[in-house]
Design a protein around this nucleic acid. Sequence first.
DNA 1: CTGAAAGCGCTTACAG
DNA 2: CTGAAAGCGCTTACAG
Lengths: 339, 339
Amino acid sequence: MKTSTLQDVARVAKVSTATVSRTLSNPDVVSESTRRRVSEAVKVTGYRINRAARNLRTQRAHSVLVLLPDLANPFFSTILEGISRNLSQQGYSMLIASTKQVHDSGERLIDYLDDARADGMIVLDGGLEPEIVEMLETAPQADRILFACEWVDGADFPSVRCENRRGTSAAVNHLYDIGHRKIAHVTGPEGNVLSSTRKDAFVAEMAKLNLALKPEWIIAGDFSLAAGCLAAQTWIALDVRPTAVFCASDQLAMGFIAELSRHGIKVPDDVSVMGFDDIDFAEQFIPPLTTIRQDRRLIGETAAKMLLARIVHSNDGNLEHAAVLPVSLVIRESTASPT
Amino acid sequence: MKTSTLQDVARVAKVSTATVSRTLSNPDVVSESTRRRVSEAVKVTGYRINRAARNLRTQRAHSVLVLLPDLANPFFSTILEGISRNLSQQGYSMLIASTKQVHDSGERLIDYLDDARADGMIVLDGGLEPEIVEMLETAPQADRILFACEWVDGADFPSVRCENRRGTSAAVNHLYDIGHRKIAHVTGPEGNVLSSTRKDAFVAEMAKLNLALKPEWIIAGDFSLAAGCLAAQTWIALDVRPTAVFCASDQLAMGFIAELSRHGIKVPDDVSVMGFDDIDFAEQFIPPLTTIRQDRRLIGETAAKMLLARIVHSNDGNLEHAAVLPVSLVIRESTASPT
DNA sequence: CTGAAAGCGCTTACAG
DNA sequence: CTGAAAGCGCTTACAG
C-alpha cells in the first residue's frame, strides 16, 4: 500500500496539485467549494504531506537541533520538555545530540545546519571548544544559534538564562538571615560560565555583607554528586569549618550531604547545606533541599520561542536577543540556624 | 553566501553530478583520478550534502523517532544516550517526542512515519491507548516500530527488554538469604506491563520460597517518588509490618525511605528496602540503595541496532525479534538482616 | 480563484 | 568507469 501524494488528491478532487497545496497551506485563498472537494479528497485518499518533499522545496527542515553536553544528565529533561512543547506547537520537530557524540562521530556541529537537517540550534552547553565556537560564530547561519542556561563569554549569540547573580545573592542572604556568618561555597566545574558567575556573585555578596571569606572556603567541584562527596571530605578536613555551605548545584549539595551522613555529620543540625536548580529530586531528598529554583520548563519554552522567531522572521530587525528568567528561593529542611 | 551543491562540485571537478554522487556514496566504483578530483572540488567548494534532497530522492528520512511517556523522567536519559550513539554512528538522527505532547498537539503518532519525518520508531511507553496501538499495528510501516523497556501485551512488535522476572526473583532471594521472611512489594502503576510482570514474579517467588504473603503486603504505587512516600505511610499503618520491602522502581524505594525517615524509622536498621533499575542516583542515596541493575545504555544501543536492521534490510527474513538483556543484583546499604 | 510549469538538490537505472 | 536524463513530491511565481 503506497501512501498517496498530492497528485492523487488532485486527481480525486479534480483540481490541480497547485490548488491542493494552496488549500492545505492557505485555505482562505481558495473558494469554498474547492476547499470542500479537496478536504473530501484528502480524507478519501488518506493523504499525508511528505515532509522531505516540502522541506526540499521550501528550503527548510522544520526541525531544530538541541545540543546537550551529556544526554544522561537529568538536569536537562524538563528543559527539553519545554522546548519540545513549543516546537511541536509550531510544527517543528526536535532533534537531539550531545556535544560529545557529535565530536566522537567526526561530524562538525555546523553540519546540522549546513546539510539542511535543522533550521536552527539550541545549545545547552557553554563549554564548547573555542574552535567550535569560532566556527559557529562565523557560520552564515550564526543567527539561528541560541544558547540556553549556559552561554559563552565573549561570543554574541542570543541566549536565555536565569538570574544567576540574584539567585546566588538570595542564597547567601538566606543563610545570613538565619544566622550564619561563616559560609563556604562549592563551585561548579572550572571554566564553566555558571560556575564563575555564581562564584563571583558569592564572593561579592559575602563582601557586601562584610563576612570573612577564607580562600579554602571556596571548594572546587563540578556540579556532580561525586564532586559533592569530595567537597564534603574537604570541608571535614578544614581547621575552621563554615557553618553553612552554598553549593553551585543540587547534585553537588546532595553528594555533599550524603558524604557527611556517612561520617555521622547531620544536616542541618551540624551544618546547613543548600543547592541551586531545584531539580525534581531536591524535594524528596533527605533532608528536603533548600535551593534556588530555576523554572526549567520556562527556560525551554522561551528558548524555543526565541529561536523560532529568528527562523521564521529572520528579516525582522528587532528580535529579542537575551532573556533572563527569574529564580526563587525555596526554603526546605537542609538549612537551619547554627547552634 | 549560498551553500554549494552537487552541481557546483561537478563543475569544478569537470565531471557529471552523477559521478560526484557516486564518488561520495560509493568511492570504489570510480577511478582513482576521478576520486581525487572530486574530493579536491568538494574541499574547494565546501560542499555539504543537502539531506532534504537526499531524503526525498532515497525515500528515507535518515532519522528515527524515540517516543517517551514523559520527557522529564530521568530514567530515560541513559537509554537515549545509547540510542543516539548507535544511531549517529549509522548516520541517523534522533527525533524525540513524548506521548503526551503528540497527543495534545492533535497529531497522530503514525504521522511521523507517514509523512516521511522518520523511518522508524522506538517506543519507550507501554501504556499507549489501545486505539493508538491498533493504529500502529495495522499501519503499513508496523515493522519499523520497536518497543524498548516496556511493551504492549498482546501486540507483536519487536522489543528489547530486561529480565524482569529474573531480577525480581534475585531481589526476593537476596532478602530471603539475609533472613527476611515477611516481604512486602510496592508495585508500579496499574496496567503497566512492568508493574504486572514484576508483581507476578514477586508473588511466584514468594510462593516458591514458601513465604506467607498477606494481600495488604502488596502496596499499589506508580514508579514515582511521591508514590513511594504514600506507600511508606501504608506500610507504617500495617498491623504486621514486613521486615523488608521490594519496590518496583528506585524512585519508589527512595520516596519510601524518605518518608520513613521523616517518621524516625531507619533503613536498613528497622526495615530493608530495595528498588529496581539502578538509576544514577541510587548509589548516592542515603543509604545507598540495594537494587536490580538494568544496563540502560545497552538497552538503548540494542534497540537502535535492531530497528536500524529492520529499516536497512527490511527484506531480510530472519531479523531478531526480541532481545532480553541481563540484570544484576547490586547490594548496597539499604538492605540488612532483620534484627 | 485556478492551472501549467519550473525547480528545490539529490540518486539511480540505463546506455555506452 | 562515466554521463544524460528522469524523477522523488512538493510549492510558488506567473499568467489568466
